[in-house]
Design a protein around this nucleic acid. Structure first.
Length: 494
RNA sequence: GGCGCGGUACCCAAGUGGUAAGGGAGAGGUCUGCAAAACCUUUAUGCGUCGGUUCGAUUCCGACCCGCGCCUCCA
């Protein structure tokens, strides 16, 4: 069995194959850093992250490159509005993006920035001009002539043959030859960022950076190119046109596109009031792990309906997995082993792998781990788990978390970062009671908590339940949950 | 209008030509000083509607209804 994955280019699920044996070279279209990232952005990035993680788990070496678009119309406009230069403007949001990505455990890829590749982009345009594929207009802009690339439209399955007729107009026109020709390079406008290059002053068109940087980092042909579904056209179509007409080689073999999500059943938009950045959700008191879990729980090609109810459900699901892991690590078990548990663990690992091999069916992989958790909890209750059984079961949990990455119990410290950030943007008023509580629970050190628990246990031994309940309530208010079990006290942060 | 995706229980959401995974929520129970965790039972004769193919369809085909996406540098 091997990974089978949907390829937008062929419109079908294909067996994933690499150009170089066990090495995967992939490129993901990253953020345009003009604002804080929203959960739609992060759905895509989480999906790419899980793909990357699963490829590693499957034995591949993965080289993932992601671009940061740090110059475009919105950036130029907003920077001007704020009275800062482009670099000052984007560095703030790039930093925020990286913090956010780390908050939901996205492994940081190799990052490349558009503004650091301006001269390479200009050279790229010059080569296209030499080949007669690109042309310059009188204002100093450069366009790609789609008439010179007959396969144009092959990714998005569009027929541009009608458009090609329009390309017969006089090349000396001021404007584009054809309405569909796209800008490779934009001539400078007053007050806009501009670079002096071998092809003249100006700034790059959006599509160019991805062609230039991906090929520089990964070679003229590489394995997989990823992004949100909206990028299929025109962005990725244009990247293919530029790249393949220059090299004559297949640009990327697999095209991986993540479907847009819905929020409370509707398209996320500012006008509908259902537009949320990652930080908005944390301010409301939601844990990063809940957010990641929810984003990860619907297979990437399906529409995901992101709801606050779903976020609560995700938190409970994560809690269930964490509790299970804690039961296994903290419990005392009699020596020996129960062969059924070893079988259960290996079957679960196999099932998760098969599910993910099937075009990253994350929902099925989750079903697999939960079925194991129920069976094993049942065995735990009836004392059928022996000392040697914990490690295979925990290994299955680890396999799951290598991909899903939601079991690390560090939500408190991550939420603290957002808590500390809020006042710097005048958003103190948006800090919810839930966030305050979560941050508070992070204030108590493990040692503080252990001391309180010792106090409580002493009270319970002397059957001073009033005292015991008081300590429980105190810890509960501080965001700490105490569980008394026959194997002793377990605790965790809410 | 063109191209594409989807409609599964109270909610989220897999899946299959042979009779519906998983999670949450609800109800009942076991355990329990309290609390929590966990387990057991239970909740879709039903998978948008109507036809068709088939021994048999939720799964294939057709029509229709509804939702969504791209066609505008929104992931």
């Amino acid at each position: 069995m091997a990974l089978r994955i949907y390829n937008t280019m062929s419109s079908q699920v294909e067996e994933f194959r690499t150009l170089r044996d066990k090495e995967v070279r992939m490129y993901a279209c990253g953020p345009t850093v003009y604002d804080y990232g929203h959960i739609g952005n992060f759905r895509t990035f989480v999906a790419v992250d899980m793909l990357q993680r699963f490829l590693r788990q499957s034995g591949y070496t993965v080289r993932l490159v992601m671009n940061i678009t740090d110059v475009d119309d919105k950036i130029i406009r907003n920077a001007a509005r704020d009275g800062v230069n482009v670099q000052q403007y984007t560095s703030k949001y790039e930093k925020a993006f990286l913090e956010d990505a780390a908050m939901i455990d996205i492994e940081q890829p190799k990052l490349v920035r558009a503004t650091e590749h301006i001269s390479q982009m200009a050279d790229f345009v010059a080569k296209l001009v030499e080949k007669g594929i690109a042309y310059r207009t009188d204002d100093g802009s450069y366009y790609f002539s789609i008439a010179k690339f007959p396969q144009y439209g092959k990714l998005s399955k569009r027929d541009f043959s009608g458009m090609l007729d329009g390309a017969r107009v006089d090349v000396d026109e001021y404007d584009k030859d054809s309405a569909r020709d796209f800008a490779l390079w934009k001539a400078p406008k007053p007050g806009e960022a501009s670079w002096d290059t071998s092809i003249g002053p100006g700034r790059p068109g959006w599509h160019l950076e991805c062609s230039v940087m991906s090929m520089q980092q990964l070679g003229e042909s590489f394995d997989l190119h990823a992004g949100g579904e909206d990028l299929v056209f025109p962005h990725h179509e244009n990247e293919i046109a530029q790249s393949e007409s220059l090299t004559g080689k297949t640009f990327a073999r697999f095209w991986f596109h993540v479907r847009f999500l819905l929020v409370e059943g509707e398209k996320m938009s500012k006008s509908l009031g259902n537009f949320y950045t990652l930080r908005d959700l944390v301010l409301k008191g939601h844990k990063p792990s809940s957010i990641r879990y929810l984003l990860a729980s619907v297979p990437y090609r399906n529409q995901l309906n992101f709801t606050f109810d779903g976020l609560k459900q995700a938190a409970v699901s994560v809690e269930r997995l964490r509790n299970f892991r804690q039961r296994l690590t903290a419990g005392n078990f009699p020596p020996g082993s129960n062969p059924e548990m070893r079988t259960l663990a290996s079957e679960t690992i196999e099932r998760m792998r098969a599910s993910l091999d099937d075009d990253l069916n994350t929902a099925q992989a989750q079903a697999g781990i939960f079925e194991m958790v129920r069976s094993a909890n049942s065995a735990l209750d009836s004392g059928q788990i022996k000392k040697d059984d914990t490690s295979p079961l925990l290994a299955a949990v680890e396999k799951f978390d290598e991909i899903f990455a939601v079991l690390n119990d560090d939500d408190g410290s991550k939420m603290k970062q957002v808590f500390d950030w809020a006042p710097t943007e005048g958003r103190e008023k948006d800090i919810s009671a839930e966030l305050r509580e979560a941050v508070q629970s992070g204030q108590l050190s493990d040692a503080d908590i252990e001391n309180k628990i010792a106090e409580m246990e002493a009270a319970r031994r002397s059957r001073n339940f009033k005292m015991s309940d008081a300590v429980r309530a105190e810890l509960s208010n501080a965001g700490i949950v105490i569980e008394n079990t026959k194997d002793g006290v377990r605790w965790h942060r809410k």
